[in-house]
Design a protein around this nucleic acid. Structure first.
Lengths: 164, 164
DNA sequence: TACGATCTGTATGCATACTGTCAATATTGC
DNA sequence: GCAATATTGACAGTATGCATACAGATCGTA
């Protein structure tokens, strides 16, 4: 058993709205915003199931970005993956506690916490990578190749519009 | 100015990954799970911008479900919209504080908190409804009609697979 | 009818998220 | 060079979201 999000999962089984949809339904069950919330829920649960509890989706993204952009400050890192400055601090705290990330001050700009990934962090990242890729695959499992590409293209289009 | 999610919004403007995408990128910027997280972020920000701070997306969904399913307990309500039993308590607390929802015990089953919407709650719901519909429209703005239908269909397909 | 299994709401703890605010520090305009 | 401005990281406060645990209530069944 996965154990992740068991109650909301069981709850969803009783929701009749994702298999048959009556017309004239003004509730949240017909709103794209609600779909996205539910998909996010599904994605997080899949991540927990496949990767394990040592690393959350948020922590994986941060670790990944730190590995790819060594020497960035917290604000720059947050900018890369779309986090809030107020949130990233706690995320890095937890990664630092695990010994996967190191903070070091910058001599040039004493406001900055330069971030770098440790060898242990590299190992954790490498360990998690296959499972993370598996999550993406499972997430889009019910879609055929063409649909997957269309879905990703539309997501990017939406993001480019709203963020770009 | 909206003021909602300003820091992450500004941050996103500096992210180069949603307009041009280089090949061989193993980071989170090519992962559907990350897209969904970002879309959720966008949807919540739009909701705040259009509806205002009096009502969160979560609270709207709960209020909506209570209005449509009078006399349900908290667990039943949570099941309807895919919340956790532990989370819904706090959501209802806040709706109750605003005087939009009433809890009342059931004589038949003394475990239950029967939920009902108050006249003030009805008014708040009616007041918010147009803005909530506008959010859905803005969210899918960059997609044409055909794409919107395809996007919603794929979302439902994914949800039916993972939740149904 | 007694008893174990199940369900309900609640509490606690941890992990996001975002707003507002602040102090320290850079940067810029003049 | 110096005052106005912007940036950075931190903190408090609020709101989800989920795991776990618990007490009270109900139900199925022996």
């Amino acid at each position: 058993m996965s154990g992740v999000n068991e109650r909301a999962h069981k709850a969803a089984h009783r929701t009749p709205d994702y298999t048959s949809s009556g017309p004239g339904d003004l509730s949240v069950h017909r709103m794209p915003g609600h779909f996205i919330r539910r998909l996010q829920q599904v994605a997080v649960r899949l991540f927990g199931d496949c990767v394990g509890p040592e690393l959350t989706p948020v922590q994986y993204a941060a670790l990944c970005a730190i590995a790819q952009t060594p020497g960035a400050g917290q604000a720059a890192l947050a900018a890369l993956i779309g986090y809030d400055r107020a949130t990233i601090g706690g995320v890095i705290d937890r990664l630092e506690q695990k010994g996967w990330v190191a903070r070091s001050g910058s001599p040039e700009d004493r406001r900055l916490n330069l971030l770098s990934i440790t060898p242990d962090g590299q190992a954790a990242l490498a360990r998690a990578a296959p499972a993370v890729l598996a999550v993406q695959d499972k997430l889009l499992e019910p879609l055929d190749q063409q649909e997957r590409e269309a879905f990703e293209r539309m997501c990017l289009k939406l993001l480019a519009h709203h963020l770009g």
